[in-house]
Simulated scan of single mutants.
Amino acid sequence: MTPDLISLATRVGEALMSRHWQLGTAESCTGGLVSALVTEVAGSSAWFDRGIVSYSNEAKVELLGVSPLTLHAHGAVSEQTVREMLSGVLARSSAQVAVAVSGIAGPGGGTAEKPVGTVCFGWQRRGVEAVCETLLLPGSRAEVRRAAAQIALAGVLRHALD
């Protein structure tokens, strides 16, 4: 864990603590990296409720309530799926803020439509419409995952805590 990512997670925690809010995460391609960064911060138990790693489609359905129809129509790497991941983590937690990530970290698994490095992000505050975006991140598998975790946390500050 690099100091810049720990610093970002610390800022997220400070912002959540100032509002007496908690964070929930729903992760796929990051495999729990966002949650790991958050829990590197001492005292994060005061502002981090839970992280759900749903790597397989079956896990997305079982753990987060993502519709099999959504997965069939749009795929796991889609803003539609990320929206349902957000809804799922908020419904299954006491968090006021959620972040969700699903993507193709590589080196394989990409397609012409969704190349390696395609990552879908979502952020939502309870009772507020979700904000989602899809980015194409360059680099190796490790670099894509690290960048995705950084973007996920930065988005909590930008979208969910504005």
Rank of each mutant, 00 (worst) to 15 (best):
L86Y: 04
V116N: 01
M1R: 09
R11G: 03
D162L: 01
L63V: 08
G103S: 06
V34S: 10
V89G: 09
T70Y: 00
A46S: 14
G108D: 15
I6R: 02
Q150R: 14
G32V: 03
T25P: 01
T81E: 10
A26I: 05
E27M: 03
A46G: 12
C132V: 15
V12G: 04
R158K: 15
L8G: 12
S18T: 15
T118L: 10
Q124K: 13
A42Q: 09
E129G: 14
V144M: 13
L135T: 08
L135I: 06
E14A: 13
R145W: 01
V131W: 01
A9H: 10
A98G: 04
Y55I: 03
V34R: 05
H74K: 12
A76I: 04
S45P: 06
Q22N: 10
S54I: 04
L23Y: 00
V61S: 01
G139M: 07
S44I: 14
G43Y: 12
G106K: 06
I6L: 13
A105I: 03
H20A: 08
A148T: 07
L157S: 14
L86E: 12
L64P: 09
A148I: 12
K60G: 14
E84W: 02
G139V: 12
A15Q: 04
A152M: 03
A154E: 11
A91Y: 02
R92S: 14
T134Y: 05
D4F: 02
P3W: 04
K114A: 10
L86K: 02
H74Y: 11
A36G: 05
R141N: 05
F48S: 04
V101C: 05
